[in-house]
């Protein structure tokens, strides 16, 4: 008797699958439609965001190109067909109004006080210096860690020397953060007193990224000279 009473309440498997299938179709349709509808705007937004960030660190740049530097030393333009090899590092070449290379921008990451500090720094290939940097993402304590963007003494660290050694494999001098007031060499970063850990993160992020990127792109600089 019990079984009979319960029987009409259970849904047949076919009905369940049918309903779920129908529902998935509807949902899929909605998702695809919204993806298609917003794709152009999203891409445009991303491009503007990158451009803005790069223009901020390379003030003379008027347009940018996105490149990948592969571990073998090749430099390929993103979106120009070539396949990116694993371990390739992305960087941006900024060009001024006449199409001449104004600077190279790349991202660096290092552990800060609260979380990873992600920065974008501009490399000036002519002078062999890191011209400036900006913060892409950080969770440093407001009022302490964010001094790296406003502290005059800290900003005076830039341009920061980043020349390659004779064998073009590493930097001639490792970029190091030293405690406040003890900077003597042009490749040292003078830390902010009270925000030492964040200062150190900036130095380390630049050093780590430059150690990898600069040996790869310096032989290819001619390829980047003019806007293609």
């Amino acid at each position: 008797m019990n079984v009979e009473a319960l029987a009409p309440q259970t849904t047949p498997t076919v009905a369940m699958i049918r309903t779920l299938g129908l529902l998935s179709a509807i949902c899929g349709l909605i998702i695809v439609a919204s993806y298609q509808g917003t794709y152009a705007a999203v891409q445009e937004n991303k491009r503007i965001a990158i451009e803005r960030a790069v223009f901020k660190v390379i003030p003379t740049a008027k347009s940018i190109e996105e490149y990948l530097a592969s571990p073998e030393g090749g430099v390929t333009k993103v979106g120009a067909g070539g396949t990116a090899s694993p371990g390739a590092v992305k960087f941006y070449a900024g060009y001024d109004a006449t199409g001449k290379l104004a600077g190279i921008a790349a991202e660096g990451v290092a552990k800060g006080y609260a979380d990873n500090v992600r920065i974008l720094f501009a490399y000036d290939p002519v002078a062999g210096t890191v011209a400036s940097f900006s913060v892409v993402a950080s969770r440093e304590t407001p009022g302490i860690g964010d001094k790296i963007l406003v502290n005059k003494d800290f900003l005076a660290n830039f341009p920061l020397e980043a020349k390659l050694s004779a064998d073009l494999k590493t930097l001639a001098h490792e970029i190091r953060t030293v405690k406040h007031g003890s900077k003597v060499n042009p490749w040292e970063v003078d830390a902010i007193s009270g925000a030492t850990i964040t200062s150190r993160a900036v130095g380390k992020a630049i050093n780590d990224a430059a150690q990898v990127l600069l040996p790869r792109i310096s032989p290819q600089l001619d390829k980047l000279k003019e806007k293609s």
Binding site: C27, I30, I31, T38, A41, V42, N45
Partner: peptide
């Protein structure tokens, strides 16, 4: 499934807006 669908839509829209 239904909620996730609309969340995805919102996700795209916010990316498109800002």
């Amino acid at each position: 499934v239904i909620i996730a669908t609309f969340v995805t839509v919102v996700d795209y829209v916010i990316q498109a807006v800002s």
